[in-house]
């Protein structure tokens, strides 16, 4: 190459005026920030604030909103009949969370020990069913387990039972449906946490004389704790709101928090009360997230990363 000529006749550099450069880049910057900010403001922040606002409003006899401040809705939130529903919801939620954890941890643990190809395939297999329709899949369970379902019919034909067993349309059915739909949200963060553990750490622990159990208790478990907590949050919180699960699998008789809110917007048309209950759910969510973050949890983990 002969670059000498380019050195020999230096062309005057193009003089771009400072302001044009800045105006251009600034406009590009705002064009990128504006859509997402506006969307989130108008369709997340404003609606949430409006829920808070509405939870302090009254309603008239016909269910219309009256813009008049009241604490009546929150008094109703804590009515005895409602407390029963929260307790029931929490119980179902906790049961769902514990069962998901008991299945997910060993499952993720065993998969994390596999080779990279097996890992990818197995984790893809976990995700596949979750992308097909949840209600159709719940109906798959109903097809199997309801009174006139496959299991009962087979057992009856084999003469093992004379009256069909109640396998769904009860609390067990609700928990089954919840565990089934939410299991993936427990598996993903735990698997990610396990998969991130540096193999050298385990070898170092072995080298220092730790037994397999000690390695698990002292090293693996603490390192995967954020994943466990993320999974628990991502199972427990949605379980409180999944009204269609209790509706379908509980046969509509088992009332849960999600159903209670839904009712205020569909059947009873008591929007302020529905908002007040929602506010309680929001506060509970925030509380759990604050605890999670205090314990060093990463918010991205909640989205499955």
């Amino acid at each position: 190459m002969s670059e000498h000529e380019s050195v020999a006749d230096p062309q005057p550099a193009v003089q771009l005026h400072k302001h044009t450069v800045h105006l251009g880049t600034r406009m590009i910057k705002w064009l990128q920030i504006f859509p997402i900010s506006l969307w989130m403001l108008l369709l997340v922040v404003v609606p949430m604030l409006y829920v808070f606002f509405m939870s302090f409003m009254s309603r008239n006899y016909y269910g219309g909103i009256v813009y008049h401040f009241t604490l009546q809705n929150f008094a109703q939130v804590f009515a005895a009949s409602n407390l029963q529903i929260y307790l029931h919801s929490f119980w179902i939620g906790i049961l769902t969370t514990v069962i998901c954890l008991l299945i997910s941890y060993p499952f993720a643990f065993f998969i994390a020990q596999k080779g990279p190809v097996a890992k990818t395939i197995l984790m893809a297999l976990v995700v596949v069913p979750s992308v097909s329709n949840s209600l159709v899949r719940l109906f798959g369970w109903l097809t199997l387990l309801r009174k006139t379902g496959v299991v009962n019919t087979l057992l009856e034909r084999l003469g093992l039972i004379h009256h069909p067993l109640t396998l769904v349309y009860n609390n067990g059915g609700i928990v089954l449906g919840m565990v089934y739909l939410l299991l993936m949200f427990m598996i993903l963060p735990i698997f990610n946490a396990l998969d991130r553990i540096d193999h050298n750490l385990i070898e170092a622990a072995e080298d220092l004389g730790a037994s397999k159990f000690q390695i698990f208790k002292e090293l693996i478990l603490p390192l995967t704790e954020p994943g466990i907590v993320a999974g628990c949050i991502m199972v427990f919180i949605p379980s409180l709101g999944y009204f269609f699960v209790s509706d379908v699998m509980g046969g509509g008789t088992q009332n849960m928090m999600g159903n209670l809110i839904e009712n205020q917007f569909q059947v009873s048309r008591n929007w302020p009360l529905g908002c007040a209950i929602s506010v309680m759910l929001i506060l509970l969510t925030i509380l759990l997230l604050v605890i999670y973050q205090r314990r060093g949890g990463d918010m991205d983990e909640l989205g499955g990363y």
């Binding site: 230096p10 005057p12 003089q15």
Partner: peptide
Amino acid sequence: LAGASVKDL
């Protein structure tokens, strides 16, 4: 650069 200011380029 070669006699011309490039500060704003």
